[in-house]
Design a protein around this nucleic acid. Sequence first.
DNA 1: ATTTAGATTGTTATAATATAACATTATGTA
DNA 2: TACATAATGTTATATTATAACAATCTAAAT
Lengths: 135, 135
Amino acid sequence: MKTMHKEHTLTKNQQIIFDLIDKSPEPMKAYSILFNVQKKGIKAPLQVYRALDKLVEIGKIHKIESRNAFIACHNSSCQVSKATAFSICEICEKVTEISNDSLSKYLANFKDKDGMKYIKYNLEFFGLCKKCKVK
Amino acid sequence: MKTMHKEHTLTKNQQIIFDLIDKSPEPMKAYSILFNVQKKGIKAPLQVYRALDKLVEIGKIHKIESRNAFIACHNSSCQVSKATAFSICEICEKVTEISNDSLSKYLANFKDKDGMKYIKYNLEFFGLCKKCKVK
DNA sequence: ATTTAGATTGTTATAATATAACATTATGTA
DNA sequence: TACATAATGTTATATTATAACAATCTAAAT
């Protein structure tokens, strides 16, 4: 079965903003994105936020909630941003999307006693990355 | 062994703000808190944010990152906000702290392949609560 | 090719969330 | 008492995000 969510044709603004985020080694914040795309004609915050909203919706990027920042999705098996997990280094702020079958299965099947039906989750691990740990 | 993290004596501002959040049936936002404590002499956003920072630090409250809102901790076994999990209803916005041994053990022991040492995590599940599900 | 509905864009203004900087006051402890 | 640390009060400002509305583009159905 084909995963459909990567198939969207992006609009001009969406493409410009996705390309920028996709090339960035770290999560990008909305106003940093704005600054970087102004030479391409995107001049207002709302233009950035609208593209970000759409890109999140179709699963091309994820929002790192604790950082108010956005990274490109590099996890072909992630289900349209419905199930996301990240590791975040508290020193260098490097963020990596976690792709781990055991974890995603565990969380997808998790049921709490309160009878809620979960349709989405977001998990953020914080710690020290390999590089920062040894410093 | 005694859990030490609930033993802090709160300062005046901290106590006022904690009491307000603790009584609230839903997560409270910073400026809503500010509005509600102005009659008690807390007049500036920074006074609120400083108390919130401290209360989060000592584990009396948690921040719901996806909502920019704060709830009191009712989970006596939670380790000073180092390991938090919440369920969030996307319709009524009810938030419940999840207290589940299996989950917390699984996450505390989770190790990803990238060699990171995790010292903290935050998990947010989204879905429909029992009430909203049947509507 | 034309129509039409829906999505996207451009624009201005403003709302909501959060922190910087600095002077002052309280608190605990040596 | 004196000292260090934490907390407070205050003004100003930075950062993140959305409201409202008119204009334009796009895809699909005539």
